[in-house]
Design a protein around this nucleic acid. Structure first.
Lengths: 200, 200
DNA sequence: GAGCAATCCGAACGTTCGTGCTTTTATTGA
DNA sequence: TCAATAAAAGCACGAACGTTCGGATTGCTC
């Protein structure tokens, strides 16, 4: 990796961290330059515009999400175990990936009404994740862990809800029991997907 | 209401609208002045600082939430019907209260790591809402609509999740089926709280 | 180690930011 | 109706914003 690529990666790392604290829109070249010990112009030379920087921050974070959540998840056994692995890693990601909250959660509410490349990239990332989850739930169905009439997309939707509630409870409310609540909600979701137990 | 109070209310209305689009942190005096057809200084005279403005925007929005969601909810019959009424109104609020997303959702992720009066007010509002929901679920239990071992706070947590997922699906993903998904999730939540049906 | 390209800095641009003053214009109550 | 008061505007400030550019410095290649 050349020097330029190295510093650029360092910039994007720091930028993601900062954005998780003050938002992707609240991110400024000045503070980012100070945090990376670069001059404003020196930093800016790596990007075409601030908007391009914001997009690349999201891409960078997406790469990290793939590395620490998605890829290991796909190594778990198909079906429900894989879904559990994914949920676990996603939960950890939200707590530990950034100092502030998950950058995608922050950016999603900030840019959901601001057309442009940032929103586009966000949408891409979310669609990607949603599709992956739906697929995982689908395998849980075909493996017989879940009932055949389970709506995979609905499960993905509700899973997203659990994670968002966790983010909310943990970051804003500073609720120490947030993770336990999320796990209980997850168990309820999974239980409702399982085949009905035969009585007797 | 005096002239001053009138314009101030108009300012706060417009500010909430704007903030729902660009975030509470993305709100600026200049754009707000332009939107209200006031001069920057003329507008600014109504507030002690920008931070004070932000806090009052939240207070203002909270008042509106109380009027269009909380108060009518308490007029519904105790127990599950009241919870349904609340859910319905909350859902409508998220779709229709502001041009952009729900201002509390946007502000929550923006300010969850920024100590100060804005975060404090946000926390107050959320605690208030959470407490109300917990209470409503509690009455559903005491009315016999829900099982006695139902964890009211857990239900409140999961309800928050459903609403956040709805916000996410509707605003960012522009999913037309967002509301239907939210309703299905709600029904599953309620069903899991009901007393077990006697077999035979 | 010379040469060249990549990398970074310093200074400055025009705007906009939040925030004070002072002055003008509306509103109000007697 | 007219003074007293409230509300809004005008103007200006220092700072920070994103952005540009020419020059210095560094790192890589032969």
């Amino acid at each position: 990796m050349s020097k330029g690529e190295e510093t650029k990666a360092a910039i994007l790392d720091e930028a993601a961290e900062l954005a998780s604290l003050v938002g992707l829109g609240g991110l400024t070249i000045g503070t980012l330059a100070a945090a990376t010990k670069l001059s404003k112009s020196g930093l800016y030379a790596h990007f075409a515009s601030k908007e391009a920087l914001q997009v690349q921050v999201l891409e960078h974070a997406r790469g990290r999400f793939t590395d620490v959540v998605m890829r290991p998840t796909l190594a778990a056994p198909r079906g429900e175990p894989r879904l559990r692995e994914f949920f676990d890693r996603w939960l950890t990601w939200q707590s530990e990936a950034f100092d502030g909250g998950c950058i995608f959660v922050v950016a999603a509410s900030e840019f959901d009404d601001q057309e442009g490349p940032v929103r586009d990239e966000l949408l891409r990332a979310e669609r990607d994740k949603l599709e992956s989850v739906t697929l995982i739930v689908g395998t849980a169905i075909s493996e017989g862990h879940f009932r055949p009439d389970v709506d995979a997309e609905q499960v993905a939707y509700e899973l997203e809800g659990i994670l968002l509630a966790h983010h909310h409870a943990r970051r804003l409310m500073r609720d120490a029991g947030a993770e336990a609540r999320a796990r209980r909600a997850f168990e309820r979701l999974v239980a409702d997907c399982r085949p009905v137990a035969l009585t007797g």
